Each structure stands twice: as structure tokens, then as C-alpha cells.
Simulated scan of single mutants.
Amino acid sequence: MSDLHTVNKSPFEKNSLETCLRLSKADSAILLYEDGVYGALKGTAVENMIASAVGDKKVYVLGPDYKARGLAEDRMIDGVEVVDYAGFVDLVEANDKVQAWV
């Protein structure tokens, strides 16, 4: 039984992503969307946190939000998976509950 955690705030403006990563359990799914997608960028202050999380959690980025911000796929941290809106719905259905970190 796993949970889906959603983060929509930039990790450079709020600590929602950091708190989510610290409190979420192994085997949880984490979806970054809206400004949360900035947390998936290589070469940032949060890269190590995300890279470590990928070891025991599944980290996803909502592709349309990532692209809407003009971010290139080659800047994404290894191990982060891209999903579309249908993939977002699939994640909600596949998990027991959804925890929004705002």
C-alpha cells in the first residue's frame, strides 16, 4: 500500500518538496507539477535530495508543466520519470491516498 505525494511549489520558494521527501515513506510516489517541476532540474541545490529519493521512491514530473516552463529534458535528474495527464490519473488510481504538499 503506497501513497502519492504531490508537490506544486518551487523548492526555491517554499520547503514543501524538502518536507515531502523527509516525511514520505519508501515506495511512495512523488509527483512534481506546476512550479514543483523545478525540483527535477540537475545542477540545483535540491538535486542531491531528489537523486537520493529516487533510490527508494518513485519520482515523477508532469511533462506538460515541465515543457510549459521551457525546460529541456536533458536537464532532468536521472531516474525522474515524465508522465502526462493520463499518467497523473493513473498514479492517483494506483495509490491508496494522495497527500498534497502546498
Rank of each mutant, 00 (worst) to 15 (best):
M1F: 11
M1G: 13
S2Q: 05
L4D: 03
L4F: 12
H5P: 01
H5N: 15
T6C: 11
V7S: 06
V7L: 08
V7A: 05
V7Y: 01
N8E: 00
F12A: 01
F12E: 05
F12I: 00
E13H: 06
N15A: 13
L17Q: 00
L17F: 09
L17C: 07
E18P: 00
T19M: 05
C20F: 07
C20E: 01
L21M: 04
L21T: 02
R22A: 13
A29Y: 05
I30W: 06
I30E: 02
I30Y: 09
L31T: 01
L32W: 04
E34H: 12
E34S: 11
E34P: 01
D35E: 14
G36H: 07
Y38D: 01
G39K: 00
G39S: 03
A40R: 08
L41M: 15
K42R: 14
K42Q: 15
K42G: 03
G43T: 09
G43M: 11
T44G: 07
T44S: 15
T44P: 07
T44A: 04
A45M: 08
E47I: 10
N48P: 03
M49L: 15
M49E: 10
A51H: 09
A51Y: 10
S52V: 03
S52R: 12
A53Y: 09
A53G: 15
V54K: 07
G55E: 14
K57Q: 13
K58G: 14
V59N: 04
Y60K: 08
Y60M: 08
V61Q: 02
V61Y: 11
G63Q: 10
P64Y: 12
Y66F: 15
K67H: 12
A68R: 11
A68E: 04
A68F: 07
A68L: 05
R69C: 10
G70N: 07
L71K: 00
L71R: 02
A72G: 06
A72K: 11
E73F: 14
D74N: 13
R75I: 00
R75W: 09
M76K: 14
M76A: 10
D78Q: 06
G79D: 07
V80D: 02
E81F: 09
E81N: 08
V83F: 14
V83N: 09
A86Q: 11
A86M: 09
G87P: 06
G87M: 05
F88E: 01
V89W: 10
D90T: 12
V92M: 13
V92S: 06
A94I: 04
A94G: 11
N95W: 10
D96Q: 14
K97E: 11
V98A: 15
A100H: 11
A100R: 11
W101L: 07
